[in-house]
Design a protein around this nucleic acid. Structure first.
Lengths: 204, 204
DNA sequence: ATATTTACAATCATTCATGTATGTTTGTAT
DNA sequence: ATACAAACATACATGAATGATTGTAAATAT
């Protein structure tokens, strides 16, 4: 049994992969570190060596998922964009495609949204997700504000309602898709939904 | 200490109320029957007398929540309707208003959607919710099919994508609202979202 | 070559929730 | 008045998960 640096990094990775699978199957609270260890082919000792506790495993999992679309949006926010609504539309559809094809991201996403309990005083994990969501909302809001200042937001919509409505729909789309066991074509529904919503937000 | 039939029914009710509060605060897996008993001012013995286990408490809670809108939709499905999309719109907005004002329903809803883990083999509770969701979807689908057969569904939408998109948006709306701690005006966002979606589904 | 970490495995003590079994009081039927 | 059942409380037995401690082989530093 060798224990080189690379070996350690490898077992750490294997623990994370096993954790993703076990969390995905049993939910967070239904997953013991023992189960994860068994799946990874190690003992709990190994897990406790690399991570402080279950929460830290989840943190590590969550930090692995970074949507490339964030970069695009951030760029637009810094440099401005002549069609912010179009950017939202394009970026969102991109995200749908990415998520539809990346199983690992689906798993992590499912764990965070479906396999996690949101309570009055949220767990570390839940708090992390809430924060990420809030950040996403702010970006959306700023982009829509940009569109509004360009006179491109349809009357009837306020900046806040538009941002909220859009965010709710997107999160709902992914949540429902994963909850239903991917029983419908997210890409089709997602594209139609995005285009329809953004369409109704465009001043004609 | 009297133990008449009415007393028993009363403690049963108090247990359910306490359960709603505790589940809401700590999530389902984070709530022990001991905590619920303490909150209700009884011992676990009392709970085990009225309910088989935790799952049965949840079942009782879930069966308490019946949206009156279901009746309207069912009626339309049986007797037909000359404006199915309008019916969906109206009924949905009604539901938004009801949920926005009924704290108990919000709590139960929050418990079921946010305080419950959806896993590969779902718990009784999760399964119940999935089933309820599927039933809702079927109704939506039939109503939209009705609209389609009347030539009132806009091109670009299929019956399935339309039903899915709508359901995702609505569920997302409530989930986000509750998850965010009711930090925005559901009624405003909901009305705008519903009208916008239904609007885009109407053949002009 | 030896000392010291590293990277785990193995064991143990403790907590906590559950389910069950039993005890106790009160209402109710006869 | 008595017997029985309803409506709980109390006590216990069990199992699962956690966190901490200890042991140890191999890798690395000196």
């Amino acid at each position: 049994m060798r224990r080189t640096k690379e070996d350690a990094a490898k077992t750490r990775e294997e623990v994370l992969i096993a954790a993703a699978a076990v969390f995905y199957e049993n939910g967070i609270s239904g997953s013991s570190l023992e189960k994860i260890a068994q799946r990874a082919g190690v003992t709990r000792g190994a897990i406790y060596w690399h991570f402080k506790d279950k929460a830290e495993v989840l943190t590590a999992l969550h930090s692995e998922i970074r949507l490339p679309q964030e970069a695009i949006v951030d760029h637009a926010l810094e440099h401005g964009h002549d069609d912010p609504l179009g950017l939202i539309e394009q970026a969102s559809i991109e995200v749908v495609h990415i998520l539809a094809n990346d199983e690992q991201q689906q798993r992590v996403f499912a764990i965070m949204i479906l396999g996690c309990e949101f309570t009055e005083d949220p767990s570390e994990t839940a708090q992390r997700i809430i924060t990420a969501n809030a950040e996403m909302y702010e970006k959306l809001q700023k982009l829509i504000d940009m569109a509004d200042q360009q006179g491109k937001l349809a009357s009837g919509w306020t900046i806040d309602t538009a941002a909220r409505a859009f965010q709710c729909s997107m999160n709902g789309l992914f949540a429902e898709w994963l909850r239903s066991g991917k029983s419908f074509a997210v890409v089709d529904v997602g594209e139609k939904l995005v285009r329809s919503l953004i369409g109704s937000m465009r001043r004609s």
